[in-house]
Design a binder for these strands. Structure first.
Length: 949
DNA sequence: TATCCAGACCTTTTT
DNA sequence: GGTCTGGATA
């Protein structure tokens, strides 16, 4: 599920009223919107209404005769930006032309998501692949430290060590492995040993049926570039691109890396129109490989490019805009596109709005910031020139740090002391809390690193022992769990199981957490996060020898994991709190606030000094890479980052400095001095009284919610189980048979897709299909054999009972989408849609006995599919069927009724609203739902009348 | 005043 | 491993 909880900053939209009244585009904006047939490059300065222009242009594309939504692709950099853009486009299209059919088939999202989707729709060999996160990729490499090529990867002579080391250098290794695929690399310059490591790593990835983030795009690009006569998959992919793709829009083009550039080229090679949107001044991710030269040389690389510059800033006062411009112009001319941002004067500038102040120490600085935040509360502010003024509130203020982790502490302490509500983003400290220390203690006890007494002390100190807790029972879970010599299979020694059982026996529920009101929620959030930590680890180490597995887990917890997992304690739920935002400048990209603080402007911090340590260029010679400096970070990069920080402010900007504790950070940042010299900026606070206060009104915003069908299913079944699963992050224990159901689905998907293409498979293909699609990484050998035999049988059975209907397949894995209300969208795929002999159109959902991902399909869910299908095709299906692939399985078949459809629509809407209000209660009493629930032990006791299974 | 050297310190993060 | 700082030295 993706959700822009917003909460903290307003997205870069000029508010919805403006969107509605936006008959008035500037000439430049209108030119961009109208240009549909030439390659278009939009240079969008900060606050220039970029998202609105893109949305309007896409609406114009869709309004052309003969253009269908599936002909359009729009890439954004984050899922959040995608949700925002999608909602805006749907809004415009609905207002201009009412609902249009097939919107689910317009791709708006990240390039990674697109490539994964493309592969898993068109290339059967990839159906079983799953995606590794940074964390799980690193676990995989460390677990297979030799096989992955990590420890055989040589370093260059000037490094202090000759090879990369397990654990210590795995993230560097992964960076190098990514750069080798993402960048333009001169193969001749890559040391032989590194090339060999790369080969090993790729082999490991494919053997594990896993993509890392880079590989999704890399593989898609290979299919786009390969000779279609030589590669069947390439032919299929390229045919799809040639037939379907007519418009490609790329947002944040300045952050595109060379591999992504190749993807874009591959998609438009057959004549699709390309529009790129970006601002070279806001490139802040070079260190991740993005290449500014893409945007600078775009016009040279394409014929007949129309270039439109959106220079009007609708966000900020002239003071902010001019200050921002002076910062951008610190970057030498040759490195940026010429442009001149001007203020559209949406905000008024007054002397004293922009301050640059020095303090003697960090405490003084923090105290002043808090004073200023309190002082700003209630100050009249107009969101747009024609809006009624309202009083500023907490959520109108944000504090942007170069490094939250290093610099935010004094301010956090002061905010806390004064009781000002705040939200911190980007803090890497989940593992510092006593609660998580106590949880880690569980596993340190299991490997006999600490005694039972010490464990209990940890839990006491963390204040996590509920009233009347049963310590011996809880301890017994751990004793049992560590009886490794009993010789059970690895699957028996399930870490997640132990963890959940321990919490159960301790009777630690959200409401039994000791302490003040609200602590239960925070603690449960931490416990849920930890459940995720376990999942990440077990996903890679599940099949390791139990004793070794627990030992590895503990050392991973102590040495590696603390660096990975961010805690954001106030982020529970979608209800946006009225609070001051503390965040890094990076995370503030795309946001705006009336009041912005940029504190701790110290030399060596902002701009940040260059980093030492074993780095990328100890593995790859820098000559192998084009423009190696971008991986190192330059002053110009920091300048652009500072530019981003300053241009977040709409009206009030407070730049402050205080010396840091160490000599290194004692001096003022040159950025601070630059700003002090600008005439818009005052170096003393104004003594002029602030205008009369209004009541503080927090900005209202509607968070974007997008959920999948399965998430919706949980929300319908039991809101509290949804909360445990998706808000807190609890994961059920991994099951040994995991992957069985997915494999069956995938095999049948291939059958149906081939049928659509006119190729009919039969029972004799069953083994081959299972071989290709069944991936059960957690099964022990006998189980794997059993599952494989069962799958073959199930598929043969399917051919026997439904073989005749296969030619009547209309769609397989059809992507559908239900747009329930502004900001609430449900996404999903329908397994199969087929025409029956009765000429009725039927929506089919496959079911299999895969305990770990049992899809208890409800009538509601099927009707959601029906609604989605209706929105997609404009045509209503007649039936919904659940087809059970089990031996004894029964097929159910039901007519679709209009009244049910309306009902479901309302029900989704209600569920979305409840989610936004954070109203996710438990079911009233124990019921069948609870019997099946993985987390019932975290929720309630089993009534005595229910017998144990 | 210029130069040398020991010692301290070490960011950002989406997919 | 690279960079910055400040005190020691020429």
């Amino acid at each position: 599920m993706t959700c822009d909880a917003g909460g903290t900053g307003q997205q870069e939209h000029d508010s919805n009223e403006k969107a509605a009244a936006m008959a008035s585009y500037t000439p430049a904006q209108q030119e961009a919107i109208d240009c549909l047939d030439e390659p278009l490059q939009i240079i969008a300065c900060a606050g220039s209404g970029k998202t609105q222009v893109i949305s309007q242009r896409i609406a114009a594309i869709l309004a052309q005769p003969g253009v269908e939504p599936r002909n359009v692709i729009a890439f954004t950099f984050t899922e959040k930006a995608a949700a925002e853009l999608k909602d805006r486009i749907l809004g415009i299209v609905a207002a201009e032309r009412g609902e249009i059919v097939g919107m689910a088939e317009m791709y708006i999202g990240t390039m990674h998501g697109y490539c994964l989707d493309l592969l898993q729709r068109l290339v059967p060999e990839t159906f079983k692949f799953s995606v590794l996160s940074d964390i799980t990729a690193r676990l995989l490499v460390d677990r297979n430290s030799k096989k992955s090529g990590l420890t055989t990867c040589p370093t260059l002579p000037r490094a202090t060590q000759s090879h990369l080391k397990r654990y210590q250098n795995s993230s560097l290794f992964l960076q190098a492995m990514s750069v080798l695929r993402e960048d333009v690399v001169d193969d001749a310059q890559v040391p032989e040993g590194v090339a060999a490591s790369f080969h090993s790593y790729m082999k490991l990835l494919y053997n594990h049926a896993s993509f890392d983030y880079t590989e999704m795009i890399h593989l898609a690009v290979q299919f786009l570039e390969a000779d279609p006569d030589e590669d069947e998959n390439a032919a299929v992919v390229q045919k799809h691109v040639r037939d379907d793709i007519r418009y490609v829009v790329v947002d944040e083009y300045q952050d595109v890396n060379p591999l992504q550039e190749r993807l874009i080229e591959g998609l438009v090679r057959h004549g699709a129109n390309l529009c790129v949107v970006g601002d070279d001044d806001q490139t802040i991710y070079q260190w991740r490989g993005s290449q500014v030269s893409n945007i600078v040389t775009f016009a040279e690389r394409h014929d007949g490019v129309r270039r439109v510059t959106l220079a009007d800033n609708f966000r900020s006062s002239p003071g902010i805009v001019e200050l921002g411009r002076s910062i951008a112009e610190r970057v030498p001319d040759g490195e940026r596109l010429p442009k001149r941002m001007v203020s559209a004067e949406s905000q008024e500038w007054q002397r004293g709005d922009l301050l640059a102040l020095s303090f003697d120490d960090a405490e003084g600085e923090a105290a002043w910031i808090c004073d200023r935040i309190e002082e700003m509360r209630g100050v009249p502010f107009r969101d747009t020139p024609d809006a009624e003024p309202r009083g500023l509130s907490w959520s109108d203020c944000s504090v942007l740090f170069r490094s939250v982790a290093k610099d935010a502490d004094p301010l956090v302490a002061e905010l806390k002391r004064r009781g000002i509500p705040y939200v911190v983003k980007g803090l890497n400290r989940l593992f510092d809390t006593p609660e998580v220390e106590a949880v880690v203690g569980i596993f340190r006890f299991m490997v006999q690193e600490i005694s039972a007494g010490e464990l209990r002390t940890l839990w006491q100190n963390a204040e996590l022992l509920p009233e009347g807790y049963d310590w011996p029972a809880a301890l017994d879970v751990l004793e049992q769990g560590r009886a490794f010599e009993q010789g059970g299979r690895f699957g028996v020694y399930n870490i997640q199981r132990v963890y959940l059982d321990f919490l159960e026996k301790l009777t630690l529920r959200e409401e039994t957490v000791p302490g003040p009101e609200g602590r239960g929620e925070l603690v449960y959030y931490q416990l849920g996060k930890f459940s995720q930590v376990i999942s990440d680890f077990e996903q890679i180490y599940f099949t390791t020898e139990p004793a070794e597995k627990y030992q590895s887990f503990v050392s991973w917890l102590t040495h590696q994991a603390p660096g990975y997992y961010a805690e954001s304690n106030a982020d529970v739920g979608y209800a946006a709190p009225d609070a001051v935002t503390l965040s890094t400048v990076h995370q503030a990209k795309g946001m705006q606030w009336p009041v912005v603080f940029v504190p701790c402007l110290r030399k060596n911090r902002f701009p940040s000094q260059r980093h030492g340590g074993l780095g990328l260029f100890h593995v790859l010679p820098q000559e192998a890479v084009e423009d190696p400096d971008r991986y190192r970070g330059t002053v110009e990069d920091e300048t652009r980052l500072f530019y981003v920080a300053v241009t977040r402010a709409q009206k009030y900007l407070n730049l402050t400095y205080s010396p840091g504790r160490t000599t290194r950070y004692r001096n003022r940042s040159p950025f601070f001095d630059h700003c002090s010299d600008q005439r818009w900026v005052s170096t003393r606070p104004s003594t002029r009284p602030l205008p009369d206060r209004l009541p503080a009104v927090p900005r209202r915003e509607t968070p974007q919610l997008t959920f999948s069908f399965s998430e919706l299913k949980y929300l319908f079944e039991c809101p509290y189980s949804f909360k445990l699963r998706f808000l807190y992050g609890f994961n059920p224990p991994l099951h040994e048979a995991l992957g069985y159901g997915k494999g069956l689905h995938d095999a049948l998907a291939e059958v149906h897709k081939r049928a659509i293409a006119g190729e009919l498979l039969d029972a004799s293909d069953a083994e081959d299909l299972v071989e290709r699609h069944l991936h059960t990484p957690f099964a022990y050998p006998e189980l794997r054999a059993t599952l494989s035999a069962a799958a073959i049988k199930a598929i043969r059975r399917y051919f026997a009972t439904h073989g005749e209907e296969i030619p009547q397949t209309e769609h397989s894995e059809k992507q559908v989408q239900v747009h329930v209300a502004p900001g609430i969208t449900v996404d999903g795929r329908i397994d199969l849609i087929r025409r029956l002999d009765t000429d009725e159109l039927s929506i089919v959902d496959f079911k299999s006995t895969d305990r770990a991902q049992a899809e208890e399909v409800t009538r509601d869910q099927l009707h959601v599919y029906a609604v989605g299908y209706g929105e997609l095709t404009g045509e209503n299906a007649d039936l919904v069927e659940v087809l059970n692939l089990d031996e004894a399985g029964q097929t159910t078949r039901e007519e679709i009724e209009d009244s049910l459809l309306t009902n479901v629509h309302n029900k989704i809407w209600e569920a979305g609203e409840a989610l936004r209000a954070n109203d996710l209660p438990r079911l009233n009493s124990w019921c069948d739902q609870c019997d099946r629930c993985d987390f019932v032990a975290l929720c309630r006791d089993k009534p005595a009348s229910r017998s144990r299974r």
